[in-house]
């Protein structure tokens, strides 16, 4: 029963859309609804698979894909690096405070995603809270161009995805055997050495899981770069969005989607292995 439901769910919501997108990527743009024509379905053979050759030969898409992976990697790295001290700090609190403080840390995530990003816009724009405060304090003479920068984009990404890294790392640190750290201290290891040689290695799987849980969705992210990032930063998510909705080249967009998925399969398999 459960198996059948799972198979149905996977079939309807994962396999079928994937097949549609896969087929679409083999078509050519055309006027009409839908705006493409698939030679394979009309018995005209495979056709040129033009979208795929554009994708692989045009540096535009490969560059966007590379920048996306780069941004996702840095975002995931920042999330993991921030999660460790946050989680260790949380676990140092008395248990009765821990739940409340964790709740506070996660409270922003009860607010809608777009609203949170709008918050960053309000904070960082030229007439925003931060610039006004700095101007009022006389520290700067003209507003700093903080919004629409790589920094703003990264801040938004880390803010948006932090819980995906924080929660597995927190769970692993809470479940770790404290006697190991006592033993390391007893054997003469400094606190930093204990963290490097014991705490980090025994929670490495959770750290990797947290990294990948951020990396995988972050690689396809397009709302945050759109709202906070520099206009020239073309990322895979935005490139796909543009092809679908602005250029109306659905086959190219579909091919780019399939390529992004293909690239992310590696990290997904790695994440699955980290769970074992």
């Amino acid at each position: 029963m459960i198996r059948a439901a799972a198979a149905l769910w996977l079939g309807l919501l994962v396999a079928a859309p994937l097949l549609v997108v896969g087929a679409m990527s083999l078509g050519v743009p055309a006027d009409g609804v839908p705006p493409y024509h698939i030679p394979l379905l009309s018995g005209e053979g495979l056709g040129e698979a033009e979208a795929w050759s554009v994708l692989t030969e045009d540096g535009h898409f490969l560059g966007a894909l590379w920048r996306s992976l780069w941004l996702a990697g840095i975002s995931a790295g920042c999330c993991v690096v921030l999660s460790y001290p946050m989680a260790l700090g949380l676990l140092r609190l008395a248990p009765r405070w821990r739940g409340a403080v964790l709740g506070l840390a996660l409270l922003p995530f009860c607010v809608g995603f777009v609203l949170r990003m709008a918050g960053w816009v309000g904070l960082l724009r030229d007439s925003g809270v931060l610039n006004q405060a700095l101007l009022a304090a006389g520290l700067i003479e003209a507003p700093l161009p903080m919004l629409y920068s790589d920094g703003a984009m990264l801040a938004g990404m880390v803010h948006g995805y932090l819980p995906f890294a924080l929660l597995p790392i927190l769970a692993a640190l809470a479940a770790r055997d404290r006697a190991l750290e006592d033993a390391a201290a007893d054997l003469g290891a400094s606190r930093l050495t204990i963290f490097r040689t014991v705490t980090l290695p025994v929670t490495a799987r959770a750290g990797l899981a947290g990294f990948l849980l951020v990396f995988i969705p972050a690689a396809g992210e397009f709302v945050i770069p759109e709202l906070l990032g520099p206009p020239e930063a073309l990322l895979a998510g935005r490139a796909i969005w543009q092809e679908f909705f602005s250029s109306r080249d659905w086959p190219l967009a579909a091919a780019a989607s399939v390529a992004l998925l293909g690239v992310l399969l590696g990290p997904m398999l790695l994440w699955q292995r980290a769970q074992r």
Binding site: D182, A183, A185, D186, G188, T197, V202, A204
Partner: peptide
């Protein structure tokens, strides 16, 4: 701190480093 004491401890759970 434990690091600076000349004694050593053997733990009930052994606390061997699993990695």
């Amino acid at each position: 701190p434990p690091q600076a004491r000349p004694c050593a401890m053997m733990f009930q759970s052994y606390a061997l480093f699993p990695h």
